[in-house]
Write a protein that binds this DNA or RNA. Structure first.
Lengths: 210, 210
DNA sequence: CGGGTGCTTGACTAGCATCAAATGTAGTGG
DNA sequence: CCACTACATTTGATGCTAGTCAAGCACCCG
């Protein structure tokens, strides 16, 4: 049984009108809600800067993060017209909405987005089921590193509990895995919250995920 | 992408014509391969009878089953035109192919299929990350039972190792969970291979998955 | 200064993987 | 019919991994 940590849902900024006639981009503060479960779905979004977490709350109050969306990635495409999950900004972020109501012509390839998200979800299944916690964390760091191909150092932005809820682990186990990766000389952690990763041995990291 | 897609607004058209005279249904023996990783993807399939397993082989030789497809479900829709996984018949089955090459007009709603499969994949993520092995097996039995809403007794058709590779467990753990479900009076197992389930206490089963 | 939050580490324990073996079933060939 | 092999399922014994509970540290802000 996972540790039961209380998840506080952050409130949306009231009075914010999404999907203005021009569909201008929206800037978000850290932990600001974009949409919530049960709401009417009238738009999909593309991340311009920052990162977004998509999650569900289980019956027992546990949070499970389905995916993180970084720059250029799409989220908010649903099977029906009701939200089945929550979307929040992980950090300061800006996103661009595209309305998907009856009359609006959506100038994007919805099938391509759906298939990309499906591929992401399937890859995540593989990551989660390869049982060792260290493997999962290594795979997570790989995933993050792939979003910054050029930078030797990058900010993950997610908290340890974000990572834990994403990988199906506990905060403590995630922390232990990060120190193990540090001890192995795979990476170092910088920043006051230890969320800035500098990869020292990319090959060793990849080797750990296999 | 199987097919370059312009902007298609997704509207449900009842009574649309599925398939062409050329795409006859195919009958398969148990464990017969439908397609393999690396092959060219030129069709998607709908299950008519029986069940199909979609899986990947990991670098270390482990098999991971992404999904089981039962009657009416679709599989084989890929992001590119190369297969990324394997498809096999779980038992005697019949499937119906639909070609998806450039020129063929695909008379099915690909977006709807992609979104349905995405929802399935997300649901499976939730099942897998709720760690208790018993919960996972209970959720699996629920999933199977939902495909037979009327029948008090149904054949799962999958072997214990199929279930194990689907849930990220070992064969032994799956067997132990099934005996635990039997001991709790939730179900009984019949058939020579103990794959026929008769639900005795559906509510108790659902309670176990929470 | 004190309280709050986030990260880390330690000690202990529950639960699953692993290894091993027994049973039951199917298929083959004598 | 039996002998033999191959496979699927089940059960037991044991060890390791990750969850749980607890405490400590660093940082921030009122």
């Amino acid at each position: 049984m996972l540790q039961h940590h209380a998840i506080v849902k952050h409130t949306a900024v009231p009075g914010r009108r999404y999907g203005t006639p021009r569909d201008q981009s929206i800037t978000l503060k850290a932990n600001e809600t974009i949409y919530s479960e049960g709401e009417h779905a009238f738009a999909i979004y593309q991340v311009e800067t920052g990162a977004v977490r998509i999650y569900r709350l289980m019956a027992n109050g546990q949070r499970y993060i389905l995916s993180f969306c970084g720059k250029g990635e799409w989220f908010g495409l649903e099977t029906g017209n009701v939200r089945t999950d929550f979307a929040e900004a992980v950090c300061e972020a800006s996103i661009r909405p595209f309305r998907t109501n009856q009359n609006a012509v959506v100038p994007v390839d919805l099938l391509h987005i759906a298939l990309t998200n499906l591929a992401k979800a399937q890859h995540k299944q593989l990551v989660i089921t390869e049982q060792s916690a260290l493997k999962r964390v290594a795979a997570f760091v790989c995933e993050m590193a792939d979003r910054h191909p050029d930078d030797p150092e990058f900010d993950m932005m997610m908290s340890r509990s974000d990572v834990a809820d994403y990988l199906g682990l506990t905060v403590e186990t995630v922390a232990r895995c990060f120190t193990k990766l540090r001890e192995k000389g795979v990476l170092c952690l910088n920043g006051k919250l230890q969320r800035v990763v500098r990869l020292l041995d990319r090959d060793a990291l990849i080797a750990l995920t296999i």
